[in-house]
Design a protein around this nucleic acid. Structure first.
Lengths: 291, 291
DNA sequence: CAAGAAATTCTCAGAATGAGAACAACCAAG
DNA sequence: CTTGGTTGTTCTCATTCTGAGAATTTCTTG
């Protein structure tokens, strides 16, 4: 799949020189990130799906909750994916070790219904990042025409992030306690799209493992599914299914050091297998009556 | 899911007035459309998946093939979805009756792995349009920083389109005879992402019906699947499956006027049912070995 | 009317799924 | 160290879904 650097026209050089970028109406391009993780609720302690939100300090929607995000640094030739990672790191104060290279620099792909997911950039370890969609309705930002490329990020339980950048405060909020009306801009819609995407991707990709540590038990994996789908699964059937889908998980031949706190057997540990697609898929029990 | 027009800050008005949009590096936003249809090959006459391409007249990549697309009219408050429809109509000379309203004007959503697909705008009848992804790598357009929002369009066999706009010529090309190296910019990658998305969506959505007329036979529907997936399906099993998935198709209690040209039974006619998701899904036979 | 063609239905074995139960291994308390 | 409750893992069984192939029905043409 080449094509990008292909042969240009003959006198194209001259034409390029005469080109004036300012001829277009100003449009700003931003990235917003729906960052999800599984962690214990502050109150009950049960595991639940959390989303990273910031309390806006700056002017539009000051004081509202919002998804982390910001302007793409076009002047610095920043790629969209890189901007997403940068914003995530910046606004949350998460790990920011500079160096390292990225996977082959793609053209900022689609994150479609296939396995072609964007690899995590170095700054944040074990982060899965993929493009969610682009939101560009006129008027969605009162300042000017803003087209926002939304990203979806899956991360294992990260340290309690605290603000950097112009975010007043960043925090993980359980998605089911978050009032969508509190969100700035059209972030409620973006979040909703992101959640639906996450729920769908658990079905046919091994992405649930992006929420766990490098090694995990079948029960931990099931808890990820239960937190994202919001419904309990049959432990026995889930176990059978996970082990039967080729390439989903790989046995490490080790077990947890101890059983549960209140007794119970030690659990076998697995790591993510090589599959990029689950086949056959793990279908969620709900969404029965179609549609 | 409200939030867009939410309460702003107190002295936000003043702040807005002082805001200078030109402070940002110039970024142009374009839309590109991967328009797909099923039609007979010019040579063999067999049905095949075709994509709409234009021969570029203008300067960057003049003479190359490209996906139809162009700049979003930010100055006119044009929504992204609308821009996609406009470009498609403009550059191909396809039906352009002005009036009519659109589905509820969304914030230009995701087109994620769920059923929430963007409804077709009036200009082109029976058109399914959804966002594919956004491509914004620096350097993908030699002119300036361009972020392109790609759309995927499914249409029933349309008349042979001919150019309008700055497209030298628009034509339907069988996707399997198209040399990706001939495509301008990163359109080969966009096309490839679009095809993979289309193949995947046939599995779990009733989108195949977007390629047919309002009424169709099971065989016609099967031909759509075969053209998109590029492999033959078992007619008997396909028939059983299509009729068994709730809401996929709806019987019209009529049949075709005649059987096949060389004999054969008359086929029963169906129309698209109400389902937005196929459950259970119609899985493609290939992609066996996972990954 | 006979032969071939296309649509539709049927058969049958194997795989996958949902529900429930059984079994195994472990911790803590007595 | 035994008992009881807890958690992880495996099994059973009825049901449904699938792939492969064949049979049946209903057409058109010669």
């Amino acid at each position: 799949m080449p094509a990008v650097g292909s042969p240009h026209g003959p006198n194209e050089q001259a034409w390029l020189a005469a080109y004036d970028p300012r001829a277009f109406a100003p449009v700003a391009v931003t990235v917003d990130v729906v960052a999800l993780t599984i962690r214990h609720r502050d109150d009950t302690g049960a595991k639940a799906l959390h989303v990273l939100t910031i309390r806006r300090g700056g002017m539009p929607y000051a004081g509202h909750l919002a998804l982390p995000g910001g302007f793409v640094r076009a002047a610095e030739d920043e790629d969209l994916d890189d901007a997403a990672v940068r914003e995530l790191a910046e606004e949350t104060g998460l790990a920011a070790h500079g160096g390292g290279e990225a996977g082959q620099s793609r053209g900022s792909g689609s994150g479609a219904a296939n396995g072609r997911a964007t690899a995590a950039r170095p700054p944040i370890p074990r982060l899965h990042l993929e493009q969610l969609g682009t939101y560009g309705a006129p008027g969605r930002d009162p300042r000017m025409r803003v087209v926002s490329v939304a990203y979806l990020a899956f991360a294992p339980d990260l340290p309690d992030a605290t603000a950097g950048g112009d975010a007043a405060a960043a925090s993980w909020t359980p998605v089911d306690t978050l009032d969508p009306g509190e969100l700035a801009f059209d972030h409620a819609r973006i979040l909703s799209d992101g959640l639906e995407r996450a729920r769908a991707k658990l079905e046919y990709t091994p992405l649930a493992t992006a929420f766990t540590g490098p090694e995990f038990t079948v029960t931990e994996l099931r808890e990820v599914y239960e937190a994202v789908w919001g419904e309990p699964l049959h432990p026995g059937n889930f176990h059978r299914k996970v082990l039967s889908v080729p390439g989903f998980v790989e046995d490490t031949d080790t077990t947890t050091a101890r059983g549960g706190a209140r007794g119970g057997r030690r659990a076998r540990l697995y790591r993510a297998g090589g599959a990029r697609l689950l086949h056959p898929a793990l279908l969620r029990p709900s969404r029965e009556g179609n549609q």
